[in-house]
């Protein structure tokens, strides 16, 4: 029971970070990035291959995260350019379709080049007891990094000038511009950050359980569920929804089984849309 809750909180933070990465892109650029998870799998592949070629783990992880960040940046500067020329619903729709295209290209490439690859970062050592629960070094490290990243994100959005500028663009783009904020620069920054976040989460996950090469779409859907439950565009909502769904996920897979768990998560997203389309903290009805 304690183990499930502890697991759930760490998992929830990961879900939260995953959701934040997707939701800021929606809030800022009106873009629903369905290539989100695929970007992260590329990061995991890079980590796995650089470690195999003898790079120290820390450096390999950094390289992987930078790769995902680079893909985010590249998407923003290339394929999403025509998307920004549209407004409102047409913009979201086009972004959704173009990024499905990107996801197909990335997934297709990965499955073609590395058909049976499973990515896992094994970090050895004996289990350590935390609150009477034995934890492996890998998952401890992952939890620590996750907690740190969650904290850093909250600090960034609450307390830094740049973080507040990002939130200002989400809340009122013209208002932000009147204050001297350049939305295009902010967007570039956020898409890079978004790539880094999803890369980080997936690398963390590969420390505790193996990530299959074809997991991209599933990760995207998971992030989408968190984002929808939290309210599209709401950073606070994504964090909270991530935590709740993480605990639900851990408890439910502990007591019921993983197949029902997936259905529960999907149902959570569906019911959120039906009952409260703006999500937990969303601003638009």
């Amino acid at each position: 029971m304690t183990a499930a809750i502890l697991d759930g909180i760490v998992l929830g933070l990961q879900f939260g970070i995953l959701g934040v990465g997707l939701t800021i892109m929606y809030g800022l650029g009106g873009v629903l990035n369905l290539a989100y998870g695929s970007m992260a799998v590329v990061a995991a592949v890079v980590v796995s291959f650089s470690m195999r070629s003898g790079l120290p783990a820390g450096l390999a992880v950094l390289l992987g995260i930078l790769t995902a960040a680079g893909i985010g940046l590249a998407l923003n500067l290339t394929i999403l350019k025509p998307v920004y020329r549209r407004q409102g619903e047409a913009r979201v729709l086009l972004s959704l379709i173009l990024t499905i295209g990107v996801a197909f290209i990335i997934d297709g490439f990965l499955v073609w080049r590395f058909p049976i690859e499973v990515l896992s970062l094994s970090i050895g050592g004996n289990p350590v007891l935390i609150l009477g629960v034995p934890m492996r070094t890998g998952s401890l490290l992952a939890s620590a990094i996750t907690l740190l990243t969650g904290g850093a994100l909250i600090f960034f959005f609450r307390a830094t000038v740049t973080g507040r500028a990002v939130r200002s663009v989400i809340q009122d783009e013209v208002g932000a511009q009147l204050c001297g904020v350049n939305p295009a620069t902010t967007r570039t920054l956020i898409f890079t950050l978004s790539g880094a976040l999803v890369g980080l989460v997936v690398v963390m996950q590969s420390m505790t359980s193996p990530v299959p090469i074809s997991a991209g779409f599933e990760i995207t859907i998971l992030a989408l569920i968190v984002t929808v439950v939290g309210g599209l565009g709401s950073i606070r909502g994504a964090m909270l929804a991530g935590l709740i769904l993480g605990v639900v996920h851990a408890m439910s897979s502990f007591y019921i089984g993983s197949y029902i768990t997936t259905i529960i998560l999907l149902a959570a997203a569906a019911f959120t849309i039906l009952l409260r389309p703006s999500g937990l903290f969303g601003k638009h009805a």
Partner: peptide, 13 residues
Amino acid sequence: SFVPAGRHLFPEM
């Protein structure tokens, strides 16, 4: 500095 009629404040801040 321009203060437009629509004000464009950040409502949740």
